[in-house]
Design a protein around this nucleic acid. Sequence first.
DNA 1: AAAAACATCAACCGCGCAATT
DNA 2: AAATTGCGCGGTTGATGTTTT
Length: 317
Amino acid sequence: MERSLAENGSSGTYGSSEEEMSITKGPWTEEEDSVLFDYITVHGEGHWNSVARYTGLKRTGKSCRLRWLNYLRPNVRRGNITLQEQLMILDLHSRWGNRYYTSSSLYHRLNVVIIKFRVKPTFHVYDIEHVEVMLWYLFRWSKIAEHLPGRTDNEIKNYWRTRVVKQAKQLKCDVNSKQFRDTLRFVWMPRMLERIQAQASSSAQAQTTLVSNVQAHSDPCGGATATATASASDAGFLSEASSAVDVHAHSLSDSGASYSLMGGGSWCSHGAEEGYGRVWEERNNGYSEIAGSGFGGVDMWTEENICFLQQQLADDF
DNA sequence: AAAAACATCAACCGCGCAATT
DNA sequence: AAATTGCGCGGTTGATGTTTT
């Protein structure tokens, strides 16, 4: 995880090693594709660094792996990300994808928690920040991709960067700012949902199951803040934006739907502290008002709950 | 019509972890 | 025990296509 904080060295320096002379880079040719495909149909996936030896391909193992996963692999889908998929990405990313800690000093402090957590699974989390770290640590684009059949992590990452991050920039927002995230959550996502529902009702009912699964979750904590950012929606997010529908924050709060993918829990924006706090609530306990109560020593963070959370993140999710 | 600006996405990179030697 | 190798990830780039000026 250090890698993302290691200031990325601007990486403009390539050609730094000299023994790469017989390595092909850049786009793959059809011949290369068929060679790789044949190799994998015989030998299966994996052993990527052996591909060049066996086939004579002048490609690195990493390159072969990438080509297979993102292009050659059966059932891989590219382009035309549907509304449902877009909504799914936004929702999953809003739950799992935000990284809040960018300063290295904060990172180092919290890294201690990570190490503790990893070394000792029964570690009790008494501070909401600790859980944030767990989420941060466990986040993977590929986890989101798992919920979008045929889509690769690369494509979802591309979508996020080219559409969402870019739109945040146009709005002069930080993608991780509360303002932008609230805009996504309370304005943009409900709007997408309406489109999807309109789509589903006008066309076949084949999509309705998906729609019901992709209900945006209710959010009793943060709902009040949403109207403040509603005007930002007029900037026209994403590709098929139109300003026809005006969705207000309460439409989400009224929905009462929970996200079926979550299985047992739901996330809720806390609203304090620049909105960085989040609370995980077990479904069967019902929602209990936690605003202003602070998090130190809250006994919600039992070993059982933490283990459940860990399972959600690591296994199911 | 031409050029410039912008958008897209396949592919690259370095890093860190895990397995193997 | 230490070094090497393999793999997968997030972040980033750049060629190519598209839109705007």
